[in-house]
Design a protein around this nucleic acid. Structure first.
Lengths: 223, 223
DNA sequence: GATTTAATATGATTTAGATCATATTTTTGT
DNA sequence: ACAAAAATATGATCTAAATCATATTAAATC
C-alpha cells in the first residue's frame, strides 16, 4: 500500500451525498491509498480505524473460515464504500476482509471524520441507511439461495450478478473466487461451468467468461 | 388482525430514538394492531405500506421458497422494528414475510410518517443505520455458517442465538421452525437434537428446549 | 368431543456435492 | 529467463444430509 494522487471529490459515496460546503473538509481529511493486486486493504477481526471508498480497481469483500476456506460476500467497484460494516453497535472490528483483485486506488477517511460527516450530512446518513437496506436484502436473498437452490442455479445467479456489476456480458474472474462467491468448491464450479459451456449459455476463454444467453441463465434462478 | 389498545410510546424503536417533541406526533399517527398466532403481518412480495414495531409477542421473519420451503432470517421480539427492509432504494415490496408465532401486538406507522420521522430525528436515522449494520453483519455470518459449517454446528448456533434472544436458557420452538432457521430439514434437526440430548447438552420436553451446557454447545460453533 | 389437520418420531434409500488424488498449464517472483 | 507457486483440469471415492415412507401423537376446528 502506498499513497496515491488525489481523487476527483465527486465519485465516492461520501462526496456524492455530502453538502457542497462539506466537500472541502472531505478534501482535507481524505487520504488516497493504492494497493497492488492481491494486497489486503483490511482484515477481518482487526480494529476498524476508518472507512474506504473504492476509486479505481476491483475488490473482493470476504469472510475467512480457517486458513483455506472463505466466502465472498460482495465484489466492490468504483464509488463503493468499504468497511462500513464496522459502523454497527458492537465491537469495532472488521467482520470481513477486503482484498484487491487488481491494482486499486481507494480514498480513506478515519472513523471520527466519517462520523462527523454523518452528523453534518443527514442525506449521507439516509443514503447509507438505504444502501444497508439494499445490502441486507441481497444478503438474505443469498442466504435463501444457499439453503434452497442447487449449485448450478447459484452459479447462474453468481454469473448474472457479476455481469450486472461489470455492466458487461464479459468479465474476468478466477474459478476459485467464483466458487467462494457461489458458496461451493472449485471442483464443483469447474464441472458446472463445463455444463453451461456445453449448453452454450456461456463461453470461456482462460479466466474470461462471456454470458451468451442471459435469458436461459435466468431461468435457472427461478426454478 | 384487529385494532388494539394504545402502546406506552416508550418501548419501540421509533419512540426510543425520536426527540421528545416528536412523540406526540407519533402518538397521533400510530395504529395499534393485534394478530393471532400464525397470522401473517405482512407478506413477501406485497407492497410496503408501512413499518411495524413489535409491542408484545413473538414474530418470525421469513422468506418463502415455493409452497413448502422457507428460511427464517430472524425472530423479532418486543421493541423490534419490522418491515424496514422495505426502505431500500429498489421497488417498495416486502422482501420477507412476518408471521406471528403467538398472539402479538404491534404498532404500525405508514411509510410517509416514518420517512418524515427520519427527517426530523437524525438520531433515529443513525440508530436505524447502526441496526442495519448489525443485521448485515449477522446475515453475513450466517451465510458463512451455511457454507462452511455442518448442520450440527448450525443447530448449536441457532439454539444459542434463540436463547440469547429470549434471555433464557429455556424456550419454546417447533422443530420445523428450528429447521427453517438453521437452514435444513425437519428430519435432520430431529436427529441432531437427539444427539444433543444424548450428549446432555440440552433437555427437551415437548416443544420446550432447555440448554444445559452452554459452553459445550459453543464449542460446536468455533470448530 | 369427534374429526380433521398439523407436528413429531424414526427407519430406509438416494444423491448432490465435498473430498481426495494427480497431471498439466499458467502466473509470478527473482 | 527460469524456478517455484498458483490455478486449472479431470477422474474416483466418500459422506452428510435430503428425500421418501409411514407410524404415532398432539393440537386445532367445527
Amino acid at each position: 500500500m502506498k499513497k496515491a494522487g488525489a481523487c476527483d471529490l465527486k465519485t465516492c459515496f461520501l462526496c456524492q451525498f455530502s453538502i457542497p460546503e462539506w466537500i472541502a473538509a472531505v478534501g482535507d481529511h481524505k487520504q488516497h491509498l493504492s494497493y497492488k493486486k492481491n494486497e489486503t486493504i483490511f482484515q477481518e477481526g482487526s480494529p476498524v480505524k476508518g472507512i474506504y471508498f473504492l476509486y479505481d480497481g476491483k475488490v473482493k469483500v470476504h469472510k475467512q473460515w480457517g486458513a483455506e476456506k472463505e466466502l465472498i460476500v460482495r465484489f466492490a467497484q468504483k464509488g463503493d464504500i468499504l468497511g462500513h460494516r464496522g459502523l454497527g453497535s458492537g465491537e469495532r472490528l472488521y467482520t470481513v476482509s477486503a482484498t484487491a483483485l487488481e491494482d486499486t486506488t481507494v480514498c480513506y477517511t478515519d472513523l471520527a471524520f466519517f462520523e462527523a460527516s454523518l452528523k453534518v450530512n443527514p442525506k449521507l446518513t439516509l443514503k447509507l441507511m438505504q444502501f444497508y437496506a439494499d445490502e441486507l436484502q441481497e444478503a438474505e436473498r443469498k442466504m435463501r439461495n444457499l439453503v434452497h437452490m442447487d449449485v448450478k442455479s447459484r452459479l447462474a445467479d453468481a454469473l448474472l450478478d457479476i455481469s450486472r456489476l461489470h455492466n458487461d456480458v464479459q468479465f474476468t474472474i478466477s474459478r476459485q473466487d467464483l466458487a467462494s462467491f457461489a458458496g461451493t468448491t472449485y471442483e464443483t464450479i469447474y464441472r458446472n461451468l463445463q455444463e453451461f459451456i456445453q449448453e452454450k449459455l456461456i463461453a470461456v476463454d482462460g479466466k474470461s467468461i462471456t454470458i451468451l444467453q442471459e435469458k436461459k441463465l435466468k431461468k435457472y434462478i427461478t426454478l
